[in-house]
Each structure stands twice: as structure tokens, then as C-alpha cells.
Design a binder for these strands. Structure first.
Lengths: 369, 369
DNA sequence: CCTCCCAATGGAAACGTTTCCATATAGTAG
DNA sequence: CTACTATATGGAAACGTTTCCATTGGGAGG
């Protein structure tokens, strides 16, 4: 047909004013039974549906919430976004999604776009919460919002993993397994305050534990290039026995690279990841990691925004130390002289024969304890 | 402050009519230099931004496109959605995202919501493209749209993997490796026509190749329950030497379950996945699978919708047989009595020592470089 | 029979834009 | 100096709602 029917069409067909039509369709205000019937019939015949843009203009509310994240290719963000979206949908809100691809410049642009669209609230992850043009604009405009995965700036609520404490827990795990020389493998170090917080928390706890300061390896992608970078890195730091990767994909990629370099994991090198993605438990060796609950965080942040919109009490943010937990896995093993078959930390008994040898598995032997 | 400034406020402050203000701010129509300066200054002072809802009402266009997918926890959909979103953003469109969690009932609800929001177009994946209430409504309303990952109903364009042909390619791969007795492992079989098409394509090619009809194992989740299910399944079908899983996660989960059951992959059982997710290449054995390009499909579908909106020529859909490719991997090995070193398809040389033995690993005892 | 009140209804304003049209002003060609 | 044109400007309508307010009519109570 031509254009979609408006309430005016319905009113006309029902032979009444738009006010009456509005009242019966919304079931607000009085109307005679006869009138109700006529209006309903007309709406039905015309396949009428309200236009939300008319409503939005009138009510100056859009029932739409914007969501800005770096990328949903990262399952952590994908889960969080989906958690938030479910909450929104449940409350009758829709969600506009914008991915910035880790570009800080697109953040401000995204915020502007969402504000122009008159969203009722914004959920966002920024590159640097301490210094974000987009966040400043949101505050200036007083748009209800919640940060997600960014540590909250002074006094503000935020739904995020305590990266600092979680990374410290990784240092603890290395320490408990007698590793003293570790490395930190980072991706997107520049464009993410999360990775930096992890590094800081890790380095601090290493210091407290009397371990060597972690060596830092920054990479640009987790592709094949990593193998060469890792090789150089380990050559430059032959004393390393453990690596903390700033996310699980990177950790898995590192394990693959190690395999290609004939370095046994965890025999020659222990590796710990971060995030707790599902596949971490499917591989062999299983991945020791920090488990987080992105979906819960996303849902919580979503509820926070909703509560700011309708003025109700916001949900409690989880205790900082409950935003993560350490999960043991086959990729982290104790470092001892004869660690061949001593208490390897395994989430479940592995039928795999652990006696696999690699061609030049001599790194370990030189650097015991 | 109170409410955001409107163009009326700007006009008032600049001492002109709204028409003039609109003209200079949009740089449409004539205006004196003096007036331009005044209006710009006023807009600046008031931190003015256009309200898109006013504009939308006036232009009956929202520059918003709706996107409905089952779940972005599945990286295939996540990639596709992100690809589409990038295209939209580039064209100045925003994207509303709704996840149905594989529930067919929520599809129609989602469509209604998007139509009420007056989206300019819709991108969607439905449970069953042949029989979808939501799709019917979209057609009835004549909303520009494109299907994604659903085989197109007669005569319609669609951006999807040719599941049927891809699954046939898997059957070919099994056949070329001398597997005659295979199983098909499915998740969400009921709520997804994709899984069904894969099964059909696989079964048909198996028949053409003279292989046994594939045994079907349907599971509800890819969690721990799978191990028990797999054990029963293999006990009931002891002749099976290969399993085609309807997606990569399921394949990886199956490999893990096999490991726990002391079944060597690929020594005792070959496994092939579908989708080509990144981690498939990080694990050992690497996953043989069908590689797809969800991001490309999502972007293409997005462009199609945009072209329908502005009436330009739609992009060409890829040839059916170019929507996927088979990737060899360590999880699929030839089935022969002496499969020492005949052409095992390996994506890259694996340094792993192949001497691991399992309880009944009685074939394929070699695995070079 | 007259009031009063309440239910039912419709007209109109408002929300923030854009754009059509009319008006006013200046400059130019005759 | 007159007419004409091009440029600059503002008023007002329209987009689709909701809601305030006024109007109508009928029934009940006096």
C-alpha cells in the first residue's frame, strides 16, 4: 500500500476524532462500547500500528538506549551487550549498538550520534575512562549512563571487573606455583585502560611477592606474527617460566605459538589467560585463567541505566572481589625440578600421556627455580 | 541544564526566524554573512544539536536499521552483525539490535517493535525462512530488508552460506578420507533451518557417495552433558569413524568429550566442524571445518538493505559456491589400515610429538612434522 | 421541571524539524 | 525614475502522537 495508516486514518474510518481513537487504542480515558468496537475494527482493517516517532516527539522520550563497545567480535563484549539487551527488551526499551573498533576518535562521534537520536540512556565502554571526550559530553548533557568494563572514576558507580585485583590474583597463582620470572603479553595496550590496569595489578603483586618485574610484550594482533615475536621475546628473556596474557584468545594464540616453537606448555612455559571464555575449557591443556561474568555485568549496567531513567534505586554493584575468580587449568603447572608428574593443576583428570617430549625442551633445565 | 536547546531557542537568540536558523545550520538556502555568524554563535553558545526525532517525523525517515539475530554469543552472528553495523555507520545509519535467543516467538515481536520504531530497513535471521510470521509482516509492510544466513525463499536474494553445498563438501572430505560411517551432531536442530539444511546436504552427499546414512545425535547444549550423550551414541553406533558437528563449538566440545572417553581424535574418530571460528586453528589437533566469512555476509546484507532504501543497484551476492571453503585440519585423518604418512591434510606442520597413545588408539600411529 | 454531574467526545495545542510560500529589501537594467 | 530580478528573511503548515480543555447529552436528584 501507500504509506502506513496513522491514527488520523483510523479515526476517520471509525468516524470519530483522533482524541477518541487515541483513548481507545491506548485504553486510557472513557469510551463507549460502541465506539471501542468501531475504532478497533478500523485499526484492524487498516493494520494500524502506532508510530513511535510521533510518540517520541510528544513524550520527549524514545525508549531507546545506546550502547557503545569496542567490538562484539570479542565474546566478552558480545556477552555483555547481549545481557544488557535482554534487560532492555524486558523493560520495553530498544538498544542502538555502535562498535568503535577500539578507536577513541569514534567514541565521541558515537556519543554525538546517540545524543542526536535522543536516546534515554547510554551504556558504554571507553578506551580511557579518566580522559574521554565522549564521557565528558554525556556528563555535560546529563544523559543517564553507566560505564561497563571501565574502572569508575572517583565516586562513580561502574560495572566492571576489578582488573587490578584480578591480575594480582594471577600473580599469586604464579607465585604459589613457584614461578618468579614472568612476562605480560598485551594486545591493544594503548587503546585500552583495561589492559593497562591488568599490567599494573600484576606488576605490583609480583613486586610484593618478591618476584621479578614482569617483562612486557606488546603485540598488534594475535595472528601468525605472534610466533616470531614470542620467539624473540623468550630469547631476550630466557629466564621466563610463565606468561600472563591479557586475554584468553591471546593466551591460546601464545600456546599455539609455543607449540610451533617446540616449547611445551606447561612443561617449559606456563600460560595464564584472562576472561574465562568457553573454549578455554575445551582445549588441551585447558587454560588457566581469570573467569569473569560479562553477561552479568552487562545486565547489571543495563539495569543501572534503567534505574537512572525512572529514578528508582539502582541495583547493587557486586563487591569488587566478586567480579572474577581464578580458574586453574592445565596451562599453569608448578615449577619444580621434577615437575613431570607432580601435582599438575588440572581442572579434571586428563587422559593424555604427559610424557610428550619436544625437540629442544631444554629451556626449563637451565632455569630451575 | 534543563532541556536541550531547540532550533527555536537558537533562532530566538540569534534574533531570526526558525526557517533562517534551519537554513544556515543545514547550509541549505541563502543567508547573509551577518546572519550566518549570529546563528552559528547562538548555536554554539547553546550547545545546540538537532533532534533526530523532530527530523524523523518531518522526513518520515529515521536513518535507523533494525537487526534481528538469534544471539551474538555465537561469534558467527557477532561478526556478521558487526560487519553490517560498520556498513550502516559508514552510510550514516544507526542500528537497533534485537537478539531472539533462538525463540521463534520473539521474532514476530521483534519485527513489530522495529516497525513501530519506523526503521528504514531490517536485517534478519529467522528460524525458518519458509514459514516466518515476522518475515510475512515485513513483506506485508513492504519494509526494505535482507535475510542473513537463511536460504532465500524462491526468487529472493539472501546473504547466506550455502549450507547444503557446504555440508556436501564435508561428506566429500569424509569420503576422500575413506570414512563410510559418519554421524551428524546437531544443536538447536528444531529452531534453526540452517542446521537442518546442513544435515540434509550431508546426508544426500553421503548417499551419493555410497556411504551409510549418517546417524543423528541431537543435543541441547554443548556442556558437560555431551560426554555422556556421545558415549551412548558411539556405543549404539560402534561403526562410526567420523562425526560432522553442526558448528565449531560443538565440534570442539565433542573433541573434549572424546578425550575424556579416551577416544583419540583423529586416531579413533575424525571430527569436522562448521563455521571456521578463529580458535579452531589454535587448538591441537586443529579443527577441520567449513570456513565461512560472516563479516562479509553481514556487510553485504547491510549494503543490500541500504540499496533498497535509496533505490540504487544492490551489490552482487557471492556465487553460492564461494560462500564457504573447506579447511583441512588435524581433527580429520584418513581411515586406512596403514595410514602412516599418506596424505594427511594438515593446515600447517605441527611439531607435537605424535606418540601419545590412548586406550584404543590402534590406527594412525604416525603424524609427521 | 430544573439543576447538577458525569460520561463521552472532539478540537486544538504542543513536541522539533523542514520547506513552501509570501514578503521585504536591494541592486540593476531600461 | 520605474520596473524587474535576485537575495534574504520569516510565517506557517505538515509530520503522528498525547493530552488539556470545552462541549454535548443524558440520567439522577431535588
Amino acid at each position: 500500500m501507500g504509506q502506513a495508516a496513522t491514527i488520523k486514518d483510523v479515526a476517520q474510518r471509525a468516524g470519530c476524532g483522533v482524541a477518541t481513537a487515541s483513548r481507545v487504542l491506548n485504553d486510557t480515558g472513557p469510551a463507549s462500547a460502541e465506539m471501542r468496537k468501531r475504532v478497533m475494527a478500523a485499526a484492524d482493517a487498516l493494520d494500524f500500528q502506532f508510530s513511535d516517532v510521533g510518540r517520541s516527539l510528544q513524550s520527549s522520550t524514545t525508549r531507546t538506549i545506546g550502547c557503545i563497545v569496542p567490538s562484539i567480535e570479542n565474546p566478552v563484549y558480545a556477552d555483555a551487550v547481549q545481557g544488557a539487551q535482554a534487560v532492555f527488551l524486558n523493560a520495553g526499551y530498544q538498544m542502538l549498538l555502535i562498535c568503535t573498533n577500539y578507536s577513541v576518535e569514534s567514541e565521541i562521534h558515537a556519543v554525538r550520534t546517540l545524543i542526536a537520536k535522543q536516546v534515554d540512556g547510554i551504556l558504554l565502554t571507553v578506551g580511557d575512562a579518566q580522559n574521554s571526550e565522549g564521557l565528558d559530553l554525556i556528563r555535560r548533557r546529563q544523559v543517564p549512563h553507566s560505564l561497563l568494563f571501565n574502572a569508575a572514576p572517583a565516586g562513580q558507580r561502574s560495572w566492571s571487573v576489578d582488573d587490578h585485583a584480578a591480575a594480582a590474583a594471577v600473580a599469586d597463582a604464579f607465585a604459589e606455583n613457584n614461578h618468579a620470572h614472568t612476562g605480560f603479553l598485551a594486545l591493544n595496550f594503548l587503546s585500552s585502560d583495561r589492559a593497562r590496569h591488568r599490567y599494573e595489578g600484576f606488576a605490583e603483586r609480583c613486586a610484593e611477592r618478591g618476584m621479578a618485574p614482569p617483562a612486557l610484550l606488546e603485540v598488534d594482533d594475535d595472528g601468525l606474527d605472534l610466533t616470531a615475536r614470542l620467539q624473540d621475546f623468550l630469547a631476550a628473556h630466557p629466564e621466563l617460566t610463565g606468561i600472563f596474557a591479557s586475554n584468553d584468545f591471546l593466551a591460546l594464540a601464545a600456546i599455539r605459538s609455543a607449540r610451533r616453537l617446540f616449547i611445551d606448555v606447561p612443561g617449559d612455559l606456563s600460560i595464564v589467560g584472562f576472561d574465562g571464555i568457553k573454549v578455554g575449557q575445551m582445549v588441551e591443556p585447558s587454560l588457566a585463567t581469570i573467569v569473569t561474568t560479562p553477561r552479568v555485568l552487562g545486565a547489571g549496567a543495563g539495569e543501572t541505566v534503567l534505574s537512572m531513567i525512572d529514578g528508582s534505586a539502582p541495583p547493587d554493584v557486586p563487591q569488587k572481589d566478586q567480579t572474577f575468580s581464578f580458574r586453574a587449568g592445565g596451562s599453569l603447572a608448578p615449577l619444580t625440578a621434577e615437575s613431570k608428574d607432580d601435582g599438575k593443576v588440572a581442572a579434571f583428570p586428563s587422559p593424555d600421556d604427559p610424557t610428550r617430549k619436544t625437540a629442544k625442551s631444554n629451556r626449563r633445565d637451565q632455569h630451575e627455580i
